[in-house]
């Protein structure tokens, strides 16, 4: 039996390690964004980089998102491999033109003749009372628009492996990391934000969902925090004799239809859980995929849980009411099973 001690890293350190190793491997890789130098990124994803690589490759920018994200596009077109950090995804409003009209479309409109090998990394998620302009995930807003790979890893192992893949990918990748899963000392301490992360470099594909808990009675599809909440709910459901299969979507675009379809063919029931707005969102996309490709496999109507089409409110009682959690998932599955 191998008893070697596991190497445990928080989400933010796993990300920083991926970036650091890629910067060592490829001199074209550099990072730019607000407070990513001495501060190490507000959510710690660039910790230690400036000390190692200096301010020439780790650039603190002014509060000028259009300029520095646009500059990342321009540099990528010249063969560099920039990683730009948009501090909170909510700030996309001031720079979305660069992102969706340029980063996402130039490769296509050039007939494939221009490559933009860049990563736009950004913090997502709520639950810590930061209100409507700092708590969104906006998964679907990005995944809706063609031309960007959009990923949202949910644990340190995947954060590292998917960051390495994102940097090496020749396409623009929007890399969403969840604030609560960074393992930061000043946020709620979650066990799932610390994980075994090997030191040597490795990759995790950008187009594969993962079954994180096997079950035969119902499939729950989640992403980032919702995956963890689904696992929590599944443990409780198991005590009631219900075995839920939980899928961590990991990648929003492209979306891994195969893993979802295979699972519902086994369980015949589906609940999709999202920390984004309900309408026109990921829950609708997954439901539509199943309705199109496995309709006759289903034994109960598909069910969805997401933010009920309101901005994220500040007050704790309100925020907890709108963001799905383990209880709501548990109750929803119970209801689905009772109805069947």
């Amino acid at each position: 039996m191998e008893t070697a001690k596991k190497r445990m890293l928080t989400g933010n350190k796993a990300m920083a390690e991926a970036i650091s190793q890629e910067m060592e491997r490829d001199s074209n890789v550099f990072v730019l964004g607000e407070d990513i130098g001495k501060y190490g990124g507000i959510f710690g994803s660039t910790q230690g980089l400036i000390e190692k690589f200096g301010p020439e490759r780790v650039l603190d920018t002014p509060i000028s998102e259009t300029a520095f994200i646009g500059a990342a596009i321009g540099a990528a077109a010249e063969g560099m491999r920039p990683i730009a950090e948009l501090m909170f995804v909510d700030f996309f409003g001031v720079c979305m033109d660069q992102i969706y009209n340029h980063m996402a479309k130039i490769p296509y409109m050039s007939g494939g003749n221009v490559k933009l090998p860049m990563v736009l990394m950004t913090a997502v998620g709520g639950g810590y009372r930061d209100a409507g302009q700092h708590s969104q995930t906006l998964y679907a807003a990005f995944a809706h628009m063609p031309g960007m790979k959009v990923v949202a890893p949910s644990n340190p192992y995947d954060l590292k492996g998917m960051m390495v893949s994102a940097i090496r990918d020749d396409n623009p990748v929007v890399f969403m990391f969840h604030k609560s899963l960074q393992g930061l000392g000043w946020m709620e301490q979650l066990d799932v934000a610390v994980d075994n992360v090997p030191e040597e470099s490795y990759t995790v594909p950008l187009n594969k969902a993962k079954v994180v808990r096997e079950g035969k009675d119902v499939t729950i599809v989640g992403i980032q925090m919702m995956t963890h909440y689904a696992v929590e709910a599944a443990e409780r459901l198991a005590k009631d004799g219900i075995e839920a299969e939980v899928i961590d979507l990991r990648s929003l675009a492209p979306i891994d239809k195969g893993t979802i379809i295979e699972s519902v063919k086994k369980t015949h029931r589906l609940l999709v859980v999202d920390e984004d707005y309900l309408s026109y969102g990921m829950t609708a996309e997954v439901s539509a995929i199943v309705a199109e490709e496995a309709f006759f496999e289903m034994e109960a109507p598909i069910s969805r849980l997401a933010i009920p089409d309101v901005p994220i409110p500040y007050s704790g009682v309100l925020e907890d009411f709108v963001i799905p959690g383990p209880n709501k998932i548990y109750e929803q599955v119970k209801k689905m099973m009772d109805e069947a």
């Binding site: 909510d90 700030f91 409003g93 009372r129 209100a131 302009q133 409110p313 500040y314 007050s315």
Partner: peptide
């Protein structure tokens, strides 16, 4: 309770604020 410290609106005295820099 919907706004919090960064999002205070008091139309009585024509005051507002927000969390997006420059907005």
């Amino acid at each position: 309770g919907k706004g919090g410290h960064m999002h205070l609106f008091d139309p009585e005295v024509k005051f507002s604020c927000g969390g997006i820099v420059g907005a």
